[in-house]
Computed example of a mutant assay.
Amino acid sequence: MSLWIKLWFITGVLVCGGCATQGDRNADAAPSASVFRDDLFPAYMLSSVEEPQTIFALDSDAQAFVNQTQSEVRTPRENIRNLVNQIFDHAALGLSYQSAANTIASATFERSQANCLSLSIMTYAMAKYAGLSPQFYQVNIPEYWTRREGVNLLNGHINLRISPYKAPNDIVFSEAYADVDFDPQEVRNNFVREPISRTRVIAMFYNNKGADALLANSYSDAYRYFKAAVQTDSSLSQAWVNLGVLYRRLDANDSALASYQRALKENPQHLTAWENLSILYAATGRKDEAQAIQNRLARERQENPFYHTMLGEDALAAGAPDKALSHFRTALRLDRHQHVIYFGLAKAYAALGNTAKARTQLVKAARLVPDENIKARYQSKLFALQSS
């Protein structure tokens, strides 16, 4: 799944993505209206965002799918297991993982593309319809970047647990349950997770839709969704950062500063919010403050292999494969079990004309990747290298 995207622009860094977010604080606190700039987006009210009930609604085909997984003669454990197995079987039949596929539950069931947020929303809706008790969780992963449309995407992750139905006041000492995770990359295993509300997930959905719109340069749509995200859950710091990036695109620097400050108020440890703030400082003449933030960020990220992987991708995009190779080697020293690092090394060697070493790294990447679609992509690139 996705979730948060870190976008390197001249104007700033964007946080969004397919899946996760920060803690679940102050979900009902309303943001200050002064942070919003409706005047910059006069067309934003011509359309509306999806209503929460629409996001989680199941059509008749999806309901029929759930019905055939449940039986009164089975135990709750068996019904949960059957539902989860059938969902994964359905997902395996032609469904491809796409980080940008932010869809409502019914559309996720019908279409052949989805990300982990969309799949988790669909699974939550199905479990609810089956009379079970699902619970969303945020997985607290290190900063992790992937690349989409030539930019770095800062990801987050959520998953869920499905338990038998229980009334609010029920005390259960032992129960059957299933943990459901649609992560195709397995970089998020063994991290602490914490429960988050359905409201928080709705805000994530709006935030992701806004990020997609911003990537497509649809500013009114982006504003509509980012505003809906923070109005739904004002503690969603990523959405405040994204709103600030949108303001920066339009040179509304005061509004961008207010948005970044609000993000840091909600989460003082939000590194990407600090990074956006430093970029804004640099662009507005506050270079010493900007550099101080950048120095601190570099120190805090030094032991994160995905930070060095991101720097390698940036170097490749800038046409500096030697520099990229150095960054990927640093990432590999920190973690030898991530296929994206080997893939980065392969691209760097290929850019340097060393096809033999590029092939070796692609083979290693393909061995480590758990997702068949990504594995097929690596195999295709390996075949192309061998053909050349």
Rank of each mutant, 00 (worst) to 15 (best):
A350P: 04
T21A: 14
C116L: 03
A356P: 02
R148W: 12
V151Y: 14
A290W: 06
Q338R: 09
S2A: 13
E50W: 03
R329Q: 15
A350N: 07
T360I: 07
L236T: 02
R286D: 12
P31Q: 06
D39A: 13
T199R: 15
S112K: 15
K265I: 06
E186K: 11
I202K: 04
W8I: 05
P321W: 12
H327E: 12
D254T: 10
R249T: 03
Y44V: 05
F136R: 02
G210N: 04
L243P: 01
L325H: 10
L7R: 06
N169E: 14
L243S: 01
I279A: 10
D89G: 07
S197M: 03
S387A: 08
T199Y: 07
N208V: 04
A283M: 08
I141A: 03
T123M: 03
L271V: 05
V49C: 11
K166M: 14
I141P: 06
R359K: 15
N26S: 15
I279G: 12
D251L: 13
Q302E: 14
F56L: 15
Y378P: 01
A216H: 04
E50F: 10
D371R: 07
N155G: 10
L352Q: 15
F182E: 01
S99V: 13
K364W: 11
Y44G: 00
F328T: 00
D61W: 04
F191L: 07
D251F: 14
Q291M: 08
Q291L: 13
R37L: 07
R77I: 08
Q113E: 15
D335M: 01
M310L: 09
A239R: 01
A64H: 09
L297T: 03
E194K: 12
N189M: 06
R262G: 00
H90A: 08
D179C: 03
S388N: 15
A290R: 05
A127V: 09
Q291S: 12
D335I: 00
K166V: 14
R193Y: 15
S237P: 01
N304F: 08
I196N: 02
D371T: 05
T21K: 02
W145S: 00
P168Y: 10
N26V: 12
A258Q: 10
A318N: 07
D38M: 07
Q22E: 10
N208G: 13
L154W: 11
K364G: 07
E149A: 10
A178M: 12
N155Q: 13
P268F: 05
D170S: 15
V15S: 11
V151N: 03
A62L: 07
G244S: 05
R77W: 09
L154S: 10
R359A: 15
W4A: 11
T284K: 05
A213P: 00
D288H: 10
S112L: 13
A229M: 10
L264M: 10
E313D: 14
T146V: 12
M310C: 02
L40C: 08
A127N: 04
S255V: 00
D38G: 04
E72F: 14
L246Y: 08
N85L: 13
D39W: 03
V192D: 12
P321Q: 02
R193D: 06
A100D: 11
A320D: 07
Q185C: 12
L250A: 09
L311I: 00
